[in-house]
Amino acid sequence: MAKPKIATASLAGCFGCHMSLLDIDDRILKLVELVDFDKSPVDDIKKFTGRCAVGLIEGGCCNEENVHNLQYFRENCDILISVGECAIMGGIPAMRNNIPLKECLDEAYLNGPTVYNPSGKIPGDKELPLILDRVYPCHEVVKMDYYLPGCPPPADLLWQALVALLENKPMDLPYEVIKYD
């Protein structure tokens, strides 16, 4: 029987959650025995090659590309999981959420004390994904099936949750591994 496939993505995140996944140390060898990686920065596969059992999403949605990517994952994954505080509540990028977008862009590209921008314009190239009015948690954009909190979630949490899912067992996660920081 073919191994189940998992996919991962980092939206508006820092890749810290992916680092935490690598932090499972030698269990990564067992993980490769358990699953195949599909679309993921880990193997640099850009497009889904087939249906995935589990999708791990790091980061919230700060631009339209994040939204499209998240919807693409929802279409191709049976179980979609918000991994880490940014996916769950926006995280550090969401600190801009109570500041008007124009003020943020003006500060970043025009008025900030260290800005060097001879054009005097805010970047607006068509190739750049359009930035959203605020940063959205993943579950406010598509249906998410599970949440693994932490900044980053501990490697033990990611490992135990993944193994439970793949072996079709209930998630019986110990107190120590579920933390919001």
Binding site: A94, N97, N98, P137, P149
Partner: peptide
Amino acid sequence: LAPRYPYMFN
């Protein structure tokens, strides 16, 4: 694990 209500970002 995650709140059931939408974040307000007040």
